[in-house]
């Protein structure tokens, strides 16, 4: 299982590099740049693939980030749904990270280990997403919950499947840009 978890972690980095290559490449050749960037991630340097070095810095990406990276290849998602996802991620991150890093006696990260309470909260969100027809958001929540149940990542904490610090930074930035342009 540990090997599978490691492969999934490295796959996330490969996907990230591919998405960066896709974004930076010229419009007509973006697919080629994505493949090239993905290939670079497999190059061994000093006994470790390039993806391993990047992973040392980025950590493992959440399933939400992985789905958003995939969506980026096929044109992204609607503005309203994207705004909702960014708002949810940003508010969750502001609730989670400062206190998990020691601000105050309460540790919200603990809610993700024996996650019955957190699951109920995520279920409520999923039902709202279903009601609003935000199917991408619903897919993000379902994939995170299912992956956690299957133990696909090194982490046993549901929070790590729902979001990660990089997604939080992008979401906060995204939220500001989307609001500015509205």
């Amino acid at each position: 299982m540990a090997a599978t978890q490691s492969v999934i972690g490295l796959f996330g980095v490969t996907l990230l590099l591919a998405r960066v290559g896709f974004a930076l490449g010229p419009r007509q050749r973006s697919a080629r740049f994505a493949v090239l960037a993905a290939a670079v991630s497999f190059i061994p340097v000093g006994g470790l693939a390039v993806a391993g070095y990047v992973r040392g810095v980025t950590g493992d990406l959440s399933t939400t980030t992985l789905l958003l990276l995939c969506a980026g290849f096929v044109g992204g998602i609607g503005r309203s749904e994207r705004l909702t996802i960014s708002a949810l991620v940003a508010s969750s991150a502001l609730f989670l990270y400062p206190m998990a890093l020691g601000l105050g006696p309460f540790d919200p990260y603990r809610l993700g280990f024996a996650p019955q309470g957190l699951l109920l909260g995520v279920l409520a969100l999923a039902l709202v997403a279903w009601f609003r027809r935000f199917y991408f958001l619903l897919a993000c929540l379902l994939v995170a919950v299912a992956s956690h149940g299957l133990g696909l990542f090194e982490s046993t904490n549901l929070w790590d499947y729902l979001l990660d610090p990089w997604l939080a930074v992008v979401s906060i930035y995204d939220l500001r840009s989307l609001r500015r342009n509205s």
Partner: peptide, 20 residues
């Protein structure tokens, strides 16, 4: 979608680590 939601959460609930 609703059925998938029910299935996934039922599975996750069953797999969730019990409290210490």
């Amino acid at each position: 979608w609703l059925a998938a939601t029910a299935l996934v959460f039922a599975f996750a609930w069953k797999r969730a680590t019990p409290p210490i």
